[in-house]
């Protein structure tokens, strides 16, 4: 078992087989730096719980393919990314820090899927982005690439 500590001082025990899906921790274990608790100063406990849930489910990727549990795993992944933007970005940051390739791909793809075909207004609202461009600057951008702002597929709804 490997002990991980979140930045709000909560400790979590994770099986080594699960935690080595993180390249960063795998390297630490290989270098003998994981004898006691591994502090994760960039990850809060709420996010770490999510990440550990993912790692435990994906513990034996190879096995899943053999036993026909692929669909099960796919369903888990779909459910897993069903979270708010804030939480999603926290998990992306954590996956990036811990270097968990598959989790990173899953979450970035989910973010991209949510942004697909969305109008500028909708994206701003979803991500709480403040428009600090002047009207002229904005118009200039649109004039540069008008094709990106036109089309029947553009979706102005927020969800």
């Amino acid at each position: 078992m490997v002990k991980l500590k979140s930045n709000d001082d909560k400790e979590f025990e994770v099986e080594e087989a699960a935690v080595i899906q993180s390249e960063m921790i795998k390297n630490m274990i290989e270098d003998g730096c994981a004898t006691s608790v591994i502090p994760l100063p960039n990850i809060d406990s709420k996010t770490l719980i999510k990440v550990i849930e993912y790692l435990n489910k994906h513990i034996n990727m190879g096995k899943a393919a053999e036993t026909g549990e692929e669909d099960d795993l796919k369903e888990f992944d779909e459910q897993f990314v069903n979270m708010g933007w804030e939480e999603l970005f926290d998990v992306i940051m954590a996956a990036n820090y811990l270097n968990i390739h598959e989790l990173m791909e899953l979450c970035c793809q989910s973010a991209a899927d949510r942004l697909k075909n969305k109008s500028v207004r909708a994206v701003r609202e979803m991500l709480k982005i403040t428009n600090d461009l002047t009207e002229e600057e904005e118009q200039e951008i649109i004039n540069d690439a008008p094709w990106a702002f036109e089309g029947p597929e553009i979706d102005d709804t927020v969800n």
């Binding site: 991209a112 109008s119 994206v123 461009l133 951008i141 990106a148 702002f149």
Partner: peptide, 13 residues
Amino acid sequence: LSVTDAFRTCSLS
């Protein structure tokens, strides 16, 4: 994202 979707984000901020 598709090139079109990606380039639409230029005008976000």
